[in-house]
């Protein structure tokens, strides 16, 4: 009888546990769903179609897809070695580098854009001895014929600067969670550091790499401030979907802004699902 009562009490406690946990969790999920419902009710299919049929929005969609993908891949390429070094080695300046990596995360987005603009357009310190000073943008534009600022590379660079910081943080945690003993053992068996990294650490970090790529891609998609300042928002050239939303809002085109926002949500869902599927395939 006592055991029965105890079981009952435990069931009640479990119920409360699930109620609290589920309640708190569902509040966030409900918020997101309500936001989407609010967006859907504000616009209509016709508005959505009208917005998506605009050539400038189609161009922004293509540029967004391409730039986010490039920025995310570049982020993973940089994040894997940097995350590995920060995780495995302790050296002079380790803490400083660890902090520097976080700067793009904590910096206000507009400040980041402004900093990029200053970096590319102001003469480098101590470069006055070569005449008017070395200006990076002038060098790239006039010598290499590869304009960066106010052009599509500026979009990718602005996205990469922020995305990469998130990717590095993810890879660092990934490598922290992988036991380094397997690599040490491999090295005692004659494997080089590169071999241990490529054959032991990297295969175990696959899930982390997918996560880093996903986070980087998502972050690049939402990037807005640095792009607006560093790349500008020129239709058919540097306009991405996040700046489209800003431009449509600026002229009071709420329907178009909401339609583009929903398009971004759809893109994000599809790409995230796809990346997770790829991740599952690699793991398998």
């Amino acid at each position: 009888m006592k055991t029965l009562r105890q079981n009952h009490a435990r069931q009640v406690r479990d119920g409360i546990f699930f109620l609290v946990m589920g309640g708190l969790s569902s509040s966030f999920i409900a918020l997101i769903i309500l936001l989407l419902i609010a967006d859907f009710t504000f616009t209509s299919i016709a508005e959505f179609r009208t917005a998506l049929s605009k050539p400038e929005i189609q161009a922004a969609f293509r540029l967004t897809m391409a730039s986010c993908t490039v920025a995310a891949i570049m982020s993973v390429w940089v994040a894997v070695p940097l995350g590995y070094i920060l995780s495995r080695y302790r050296f002079f300046g380790h803490r400083l580098i660890d902090t520097i990596v976080d700067i793009p995360i904590v910096l206000p987005p507009l400040v980041l854009g402004l900093s990029l603009l200053i970096l590319f357009h102001q003469p480098f310190p101590f470069s006055n001895w070569i005449g008017k000073g070395f200006v990076l943008d002038e060098f790239l534009r006039e010598t290499l014929h590869f304009p960066v600022s106010y052009s599509w590379p500026a979009v990718i660079l602005a996205q990469f600067t922020v995305s990469c910081a998130f990717a590095v943080r993810t890879m660092r945690v990934t490598f922290d969670q992988i036991d380094s003993r397997a690599e040490d053992v491999a090295r005692t068996l004659g494997c080089s550091r590169a071999g241990a990294f490529l054959r032991i650490a990297l295969p175990q970090a696959t899930r982390g790499m997918i996560t880093a790529g996903t986070i980087a891609w998502a972050r690049a998609l939402g990037e807005f401030g640095p792009i607006l300042v560093f790349a500008g928002s020129t239709r058919f050239r540097t306009e991405v979907l996040s700046t489209t939303v800003f431009l449509e809002l600026s002229v009071g085109q709420l329907d178009a802004a909401v339609a583009v926002s929903l398009l971004m949500v759809a893109m994000a869902v599809i790409v995230l699902v796809l990346l997770r599927a790829i991740g599952a395939g690699l793991n398998g």
Binding site: I73, V76, W77, V80, L198, R199, L202, P203, A205, T206, M209, L282
Partner: peptide
Amino acid sequence: SKPLLFMICS
């Protein structure tokens, strides 16, 4: 390894 192949493809 698959990740390396994945990175080269990328």
